[in-house]
């Protein structure tokens, strides 16, 4: 950001009384020495003056009546929405200043995303802790499924064994 731009930002904050005491004194000094800065401040004042020419809007008398009528028709509590983890959602929501309405949709997708992520992590961890034996000549998916089935090849009769073990393994056995 150029220095003049930064100075102008500070001047605008100075105009709104949003600078520290020390900075204010510094800006005052700068204003005494710089015509450019003084002109910028004058323009800020002019714009603010013009903006404040807008007369305040008066509220209709009926506004309150209409509103209270609408309020009497609405229940004080919002209907509960279906979420995977409603308690967590509420905890999350109370952490933030945003309104509940805005976040409901976001949290639903976030909860779903987190659930998918956790599932993937668990699956990955399981595969890491239970390595698939590489020597078998069976496709990866079949091997993963086979682990769950756990076929006992030793106690199995020879005829069934032959149907399960691939021809390569039979060759090796011979």
């Amino acid at each position: 950001m150029p220095k003049s731009e930064e100075t102008n930002i500070q001047l605008s904050a100075y105009f709104d009384g949003e600078v520290s005491r020390q900075k204010r004194l510094k800006i005052r000094k700068h204003l005494e020495n710089s015509d450019e800065a003084a002109f910028e401040l004058m323009q800020i004042t002019q714009v603010d003056h013009l903006l404040k020419q807008l007369s305040p809007i008066e509220t209709r008398d009926q506004f309150l009546l209409e509103l209270m009528q609408r309020v009497s028709e609405t229940p004080s509590q919002e209907e509960p929405t279906l979420t995977l983890f409603p308690r967590d959602t509420e905890r999350f929501q109370s952490c933030f200043v945003f309104s509940r309405d805005q976040l409901q949709l976001k949290f639903r997708s976030v909860t779903f995303g987190v659930a998918v992520f956790v599932f993937i992590c668990v699956a990955f961890f399981f595969l890491q802790t239970h390595p698939i034996p590489k020597e078998t000549n069976v496709p990866l998916v079949a091997r993963s499924v086979g682990r769950f089935i756990q076929v006992d090849l030793v106690s199995m009769p020879i005829t069934k064994k032959q149907s399960i073990i691939s021809p390569i393994h039979i060759e090796e056995e011979r």
């Binding site: 809007i57 509103l67 509940r100 309405d101």
Partner: peptide, 18 residues
């Protein structure tokens, strides 16, 4: 603006618990 102001206050009333 009036409609939105009404909506604002209704949301305040509805979400008073939060």
């Amino acid at each position: 603006a009036e409609d939105l102001a009404q909506e604002t206050f209704i949301r305040i009333y509805k979400n008073a618990d939060s």
